[in-house]
């Protein structure tokens, strides 16, 4: 379980996050949704200690994030942001091996190689294993980055808009993969998603943010109502049921 208490964040005079209090349940996928500027990415980066926490506290299973050494956290939580990989003359296989760094610290063992091989297979990256990242398409690179995070084998996985750059086919297969891996390995996955229908279809828990605050929290059935959509996105959208999941018709 992730406890977020009284977390605030300011940039200059602007308040990005305003006294966030949240409990993200252990196990399953939690989706963070909301309009642009709601503070979702900022919250995620604070949760991953990418930025220092100035107000409030974040605890993972009771462990205070600020008090835990960063190398140790790297074995408990993994994050993928929207920042692209910088030096790209790295092969896919090597990239995935970097995901094992918190464990091997530069000296890969047999176990690490096995995990990387399994990830290559799981994410359909085997034909691309020896190619450099620069030679891949945006979508292929994104899949490789996510596979790397998966190799880190952490209890908590944070993903900031992982479906960007992915076409429909890969977006869907990724969400299904995430769902399966999360439940199979009993992980807690927090995903920032732009497409609320993906959230509705695959998430176990929804957190909707607006203006730096938590607007709604609950199951997809509870959160995705026409009134809530109107409040969040200022849009009239129909919410229907499809294949047992909520579907928000927002585009017509």
């Amino acid at each position: 379980m992730i406890h977020i208490e009284n977390v605030s964040h300011h940039i200059g005079k602007q308040t990005i996050l305003n006294n966030i209090r949240l409990e993200i349940p252990a196990g399953g996928i939690t989706a963070l949704i909301g309009p642009n500027g709601a503070g979702k990415s900022t919250l995620l980066s604070l949760m991953a200690r990418l930025q220092p926490l100035t107000h409030g506290s974040i605890r993972y299973n009771g462990r205070d994030l600020a008090a835990t050494p960063t190398a140790e956290m790297a074995r408990k939580l993994a994050i993928l942001t929207q920042e692209g990989s910088v030096q790209s003359r790295i092969s896919v296989r090597d990239l995935l091996m970097f995901g094992r760094f918190p464990y091997h610290q530069g000296r890969p063992q047999a176990l690490d190689r096995e995990i990387v091989a399994a990830a290559l297979h799981e994410f359909g990256l085997e034909p691309l294993a020896e190619r450099y990242l620069t030679e891949l398409s945006g979508g292929q690179r994104q899949r490789a980055m996510i596979a790397m995070v998966f190799c880190q084998q952490t209890d908590y996985v944070l993903l900031d808009e992982p479906l960007n750059n992915l076409d429909m086919y890969y977006a869907k297969s990724l969400m299904q993969l995430l769902q399966r891996l999360t439940h199979e390995h009993k992980r807690t996955t927090v995903v920032v998603l732009h497409d609320i229908n993906q959230a509705a279809a695959y998430a176990d828990h929804i957190i909707a943010m607006q203006h730096g605050q938590v607007a709604f929290a609950g199951t997809p059935d509870e959160v995705f109502t026409e009134a809530n959509i109107k409040t969040l996105f200022n849009m009239d959208a129909a919410v229907i049921d499809y294949a047992g999941k909520k579907l928000v018709v927002h585009h017509v």
């Binding site: 960063t70 994050i79 920042e83 910088v86 970097f98 995901g99 530069g106 880190q152």
Partner: peptide, 16 residues
């Protein structure tokens, strides 16, 4: 070597 992945990933992988 980890620095090659950029700041965010370096932090993610446990580099102070």
């Amino acid at each position: 070597d980890v620095h090659l992945l950029g700041r965010d990933q370096a932090v993610n992988l446990g580099i102070a």
